[in-house]
Design a protein around this nucleic acid. Structure first.
Length: 418
RNA sequence: CGGGGCGUAGUAUACCGGUAGUAUACCUGCUUUGGGAGCAGGCGGACCGAGUUCGAUUCUCGGCGCCCCGACCA
């Protein structure tokens, strides 16, 4: 991508209407645009990060047998009435509207009800089970108070996966497979070290649930962490009974703030019964499918990444989610050979399948290009200038490194392909 | 929803009961060119409504919006 064609601009000033670090950085660097409180548009750079996170999640979901779909955002009142979740007294974050032709519609804040209803069209026998379906969806939640930038929005992207199993064993096996896949996801996007499997409340509709909590002061949860065992207990459910069951001692636990980046629930057969998702087992008996529901907050994960991976100069994206592999900077020069060299390298890297943001902007000082590169936070910076050419190559520097190393294109390529 | 703070140019800010200054961004020209360059010129602004007042961007009330703390977070 030629940076001169990138319509977004970086900003020096902090936005006055944002206090959270993630929103400040992402706005200053041109990743997102705030539309209103709790609603952010994703700009070209931001979209690339989002798509990379989604790509990793997609691979892991497909890897455990998930099939991707997209449900509608519009939802029928009737389905949610059947499970007693339409009433604002039960669920207070509904966005609702009326059809011109009459009747109410809801905007999806979750999709258990419609997807379970839909699956009735496809599940009738134990032979049809298990089924694992997932989607990346924009969820709409009428939060009383949106806050912390991308961390708690009224509109956000979530990956939600639903499992339909014939019996508890089958369900439990998949639940564990999801747990492992989720840890791989967080590992791959760079949050592995700081993300912990956490015991939590299932709320009003499920008995138990687990969360994936990433340690950050920007999070809104307090968890009690056992670092040795790499597990935690959400403050919500902390009790002697729970600790006993988990074999944990209060004295070994650390109280820390964390952000919930993922959660997994077991609904049992209750929701299937309420919505009529029944199947015949081997003996011809009618049974409700066992439902599991598994979420990853895609946009929230992006916010957490910006919170965690940044320094005083800007963002420091983990390699796997960075919008580009390398930021190529052409510094100002009167010598045409310098630009030729840089453009040739740009072509060459692209031909090798490397994703390059090429800052070939004219009339932009070296200092400004450096500052922009630091703010945008692409992991590797490659500089071509009169000076680098005299030194015999390209000045290459990792985002967090202080000093650049001069190397030739071949070496740069092998470094980027690692 | 309770409490607190704040709405001035694209952005960030200042002052003021007598129509607003600065920085940055943007446009023009010249000079610069390795860590957000310099000079000169230019464009551009008081959230909405009501009230008080000779006069309101400024004071009062209401609305709307944004941020923070708390509550909530299936």
């Amino acid at each position: 991508m030629l940076q001169s064609r990138l319509f977004t601009k970086t900003r020096k000033e902090l936005p006055a209407d944002e206090a959270s670090k993630n929103a400040q950085l992402l706005i200053r660097a041109g990743y997102v645009h705030k539309e209103m409180a709790g609603a952010y548009s994703f700009l070209p750079l931001g979209l690339r990060v989002l798509e990379r996170i989604k790509g990793i999640v997609r691979e892991e979901m497909n890897g455990i047998g998930g099939q991707e779909i997209i449900m509608t955002a519009l939802q029928r009142k009737e389905l949610w009435e059947r499970t007693n979740r339409w009433d604002d007294k039960q669920v207070d974050i509904w966005f609702k509207s009326q059809l011109k032709s009459g009747g109410d519609v809801g905007f999806g804040w979750s999709h258990e009800e419609p997807i379970t209803d839909m699956m009735k069209s496809f599940i009738g026998s134990y032979r049809d089970l298990p089924v694992y379906v997932y989607q990346f969806q924009t969820k709409l939640r009428n939060e009383l108070r949106a806050k912390s930038g991308l961390m708690r929005g009224r509109e956000f992207v979530m990956k939600d996966l639903y499992s339909y199993s014939a019996n508890e064993e089958e369900h439990r096996a998949f639940y564990e497979a999801v747990t492992a896949a989720y840890m791989r996801v967080f590992e791959r996007i760079g949050l592995g070290d700081k993300t912990f499997f956490t015991f939590a409340s299932g709320g009003a509709f499920t008995e138990f649930s687990h969360e994936f909590q990433t340690l950050t002061d920007a999070g809104e949860d307090v968890i009690y962490l056992h670092r040795g065992k790499k597990i935690a207990v959400n403050k919500e459910v902390l009790s002697e009974k729970v600790l006993d069951e988990l074999g944990l001692k209060q004295s070994e636990l650390e109280e820390v703030r964390a952000a919930e980046v993922g959660n997994i629930f077991s609904f049992g057969g209750k929701k299937s019964e309420e919505l009529g998702l029944m199947f015949r087992d081997e003996k011809g008996e009618q049974k409700p499918a066992i439902l599991g529901s598994y979420g990853i907050g895609i946009t929230r994960a992006m916010g957490v990444l910006a919170e965690l991976f940044a320094d005083e100069r800007g963002i420091v994206w983990p390699k796997e989610v960075a919008p580009y592999d390398v930021h190529l900077l052409l510094l100002p020069s009167d010598d045409e050979a310098v630009e030729k060299e840089a453009s040739a390298l740009y072509e060459r890297l692209q031909n090798e399948g490397i994703h390059v943001l090429y800052d070939e902007r004219k009339g932009v000082s070296a200092g400004e290009k450096f500052a922009d590169a630091d703010l945008i936070g692409i992991p590797v910076r490659a500089v071509i200038s009169e000076k680098s050419m005299k030194a015999g190559g390209i000045e290459v520097k990792g985002r967090t490194e202080e000093k650049a190393v001069v190397m030739d294109a071949k070496k740069l390529l092998s470094l980027l392909k690692k």
